[in-house]
Design a protein around this nucleic acid. Structure first.
Length: 601
RNA sequence: GCCGGGGUAGCUCAGCGGUAGAGCAAACGGCUCAUAAUCGUUAGGUCGCGGGUUCGAACCCCGCCUCCGGCACCA
């Protein structure tokens, strides 16, 4: 029985291009997971979009003399292109500035407010003297009242490590324009998290399948829950859906409150765009569905505590809950099933930093190297369980000595031999014990590799797949069909048939990780159709006339299945070419030079 | 400061209570179909340090050293 799987992917923030650390954390792992479940025959809905509200975008806009929307437009395009080029197979990659997203966000806010889960309280806030906008604590600096450090931030002193309140700073000033901030009392709306503390505690405590650090970190976090402000004094954001704020342009919903709602709103948008407006409920109001969230470790509490609290509070009410009929009626919106959080990638031993040149942007990377090469390295050497370091030396080595040498070479030697000597999938004679043993081991991989993928153990899954590929190289070296063919063409045909059967299965194991090369291999083997096909951009126009671009794809037409394929004897091969490019050792020096030599020190 | 995570073969990492593992690098040998790729064999570690629990500890507990994150109106 196919399952409904929601793959909810962190929303990249649209204030600049994204670097490979970002896609290592949420993009590649989530796509591997989604592609695997599609092959498995499950109903996958993979959603995300660019996160376009909040202070950093308004600051970027001010610097360039543009409207926030213009910044968001620019980076929505850049980021969308990056994800497309990496082959991330979203069902819907949209943005938070759509009418639909505003409507869903406002419905959730309004419903939580009416149910008493949102409180109104006065709070002391810091404002920019020049623009009147909120100044987040981290944008205020001054002299630390504890240690006297002159450049302490409003939230914390980097010298003595103490947590601070911006009103305590001596000589406070805005990091944006250098002016002293103005402090004044302002009304804010607070999500009443303590009301949910007990339910959250019970729920999180029984999530044995979460990664241990996610679970323990979250349990620790909810020991001291306070109401959390979910509005900001900012003109850029989703309007507060209450009559007294309808005409005001100075207070909006906090970006994090609306960003997580994107998982739901993007699902609703997906359903509307394909003309089946209730289809999202199969994932959200279906107790059998499972929701997987992918993000970096800095986002954990938003997904394990705050978003679940929003969902618990909303339950099956509001406009979207209340319009459910039939099997969906009164089924509460489903909570996360698993929170797959990654650690951080560093770059040549340092944190990514665009200002210091310690960075490689996705579009820059893909202009010189293949997406599959990046996907391979980010998977097998990615920050799955601990911070890991990306180095160019390691990238070149993994590409050349592992991807090209083990898998690329196996495919190439098998295909070129068979293409040259037979032209079609050769007819085997009786299989030897060695032949059947190899086939059993390779085709037996669908179970264990699949289990590793289901458990989000991507490193282990690709390592096991590489081990299986190496077994086939070993088999060929031992059987030496290039020698056998001179004396026994039928036996040579059998050996090559066995090798190609293995390659055909390995092709499926590699498809979630390396979709582009797996599709090419699929075609070289003489098959038609897509096991990993093209993605597509579509334009949608909403009622206000505003148009936005959505990254999607026609995944239902893809034909791959997570099971040993039936390799048809006699099927004509297409002329093979190497799947991967071997990289010259000097790209290491070139790339380090491009980074301005920062890696040396 | 508080909370959390890490320190395992030259390198990158897996293992997380039951005789120390993988890949790469190194040495030697085989093959030469294949992107000079591959295959086999060998070598290599008092598992950060010191205590403790246990029949038995990389694995659990305590202390220390060291590195790295998070600390909620930053996303």
């Amino acid at each position: 029985m196919p399952k409904h799987i929601l793959v909810a992917v962190a929303w990249p923030y649209a204030n600049g291009p994204r670097h490979i650390g970002h896609v290592a954390g949420f993009g590649v792992p989530s796509d591997i997971f989604a592609r695997y479940h599609r092959l498995k025959g499950n109903y996958v809905l993979m959603v995300s979009g660019t996160d376009e509200h909040g202070t950093p975008i308004t600051i970027a806009a001010d610097k360039e003399g543009l409207a926030p929307r213009a910044i968001a437009d620019r980076y929505n395009t850049v980021i969308g292109d990056d994800l497309y080029n990496l082959g991330l197979s979203y069902d819907t990659f949209t943005r938070t500035t759509t009418l639909n997203h505003y409507a869903v966000t406002q419905d959730i806010f309004k419903t939580l407010y009416e149910k008493g889960y949102i409180l109104r309280q006065d709070a002391l806030g810091a404002f920019s003297a020049s623009t009147g906008r909120t100044l987040p604590d981290r944008y205020i600096e001054g002299t630390c009242p504890i240690c006297g450090f002159g450049e302490a931030r409003g939230d914390q002193c980097d010298q003595c490590g103490n947590q601070l309140d911006p009103v305590d700073l001596l000589n406070p000033r805005s990091k944006v324009d250098g002016q002293p901030p103005v402090f004044r009392t302002t009304e804010h709306f607070f999500l009443d998290l303590p009301v949910f503390a007990e339910r959250l505690q019970t729920w999180i405590a029984k999530q044995d399948h979460w990664r241990p650090n996610v679970r323990s970190f979250s349990l620790n976090f909810i020991k001291a829950l306070k109401p959390r402000a979910i509005t900001r004094d900012l003109e850029w954001g989703v309007p507060i859906p209450l009559p007294e704020y309808a005409e005001r342009d100075d207070k909006k919903i906090y970006v994090w409150f609306d960003a997580v709602i994107g998982y739901l709103s993007a699902s609703i948008e997906w359903a509307n765009n394909r003309g089946t407006p209730d289809a999202w409920r199969d994932w959200w109001q279906n107790r059998q569905s499972r929701h997987f969230y992918f993000m970096g470790k800095d986002n954990i509490v938003f997904h394990t505590v705050i978003w679940p609290a929003q969902l618990m509070g909303y339950f099956s009410d509001g406009h979207y809950g209340g319009t459910a009929r039939g099997a969906f009626a009164e089924v509460p919106l489903q909570l996360p099933y698993n929170i797959v959080s990654s650690e951080f990638l560093t770059m040549e031993g340092k944190k990514f930093s665009s200002s210091r040149g310690v960075v490689i942007y996705v579009n820059d990377f893909l202009s010189r190297y293949d997406a599959d090469a990046l996907r391979y390295v980010l998977t097998i050497a990615g920050p799955e369980n601990q911070d890991t370091d990306f180095t160019w030396t390691e990238f070149v080595r993994r590409n050349n000595d592992e991807l090209v040498a083990t898998w690329g070479n196996l495919v190439n030697r098998a295909l070129t031999n068979v293409y040259k000597n037979f032209g079609t999938i050769p007819q085997p004679a009786a299989l030897s014990a060695r032949d059947t043993a190899l086939l059993a081991e390779i085709e037996g991989g669908f179970g264990p590799v699949g289990e590793l993928l289901e458990g989000a153990r991507f490193k282990a899954a690709i390592t096991e797949t590489m081990r299986l590929a190496a077994l086939v190289n070993s088999y060929l070296s031992e059987q030496e069909p290039w020698k056998v063919i001179k004396v026994d063409r039928e036996r040579a045909a059998t050996i090559w048939y066995v090798a190609l059967r293995c390659v055909d299965s390995l092709k499926l194991f590699f498809t979630p990780f390396l979709p582009f090369s797996s599709q090419r291999l699929h075609e070289y083997l003489g098959y038609d159709g897509f096991i990993a096909g093209p993605l597509a951009f579509k334009e949608y126009t909403e009622d206000n006339g505003q148009t936005h671009r959505v990254l999607t794809g026609d995944y239902a037409t893809w034909i791959g299945r997570w099971e040993p394929p039936i390799l048809p004897v006699g099927q004509a091969l297409r002329e093979p070419k190497p799947l991967f490019k071997k990289l010259d050792e000097q790209v290491v020096a070139e790339e380090l030079a491009r980074m301005g030599g920062v890696a040396g020190g």
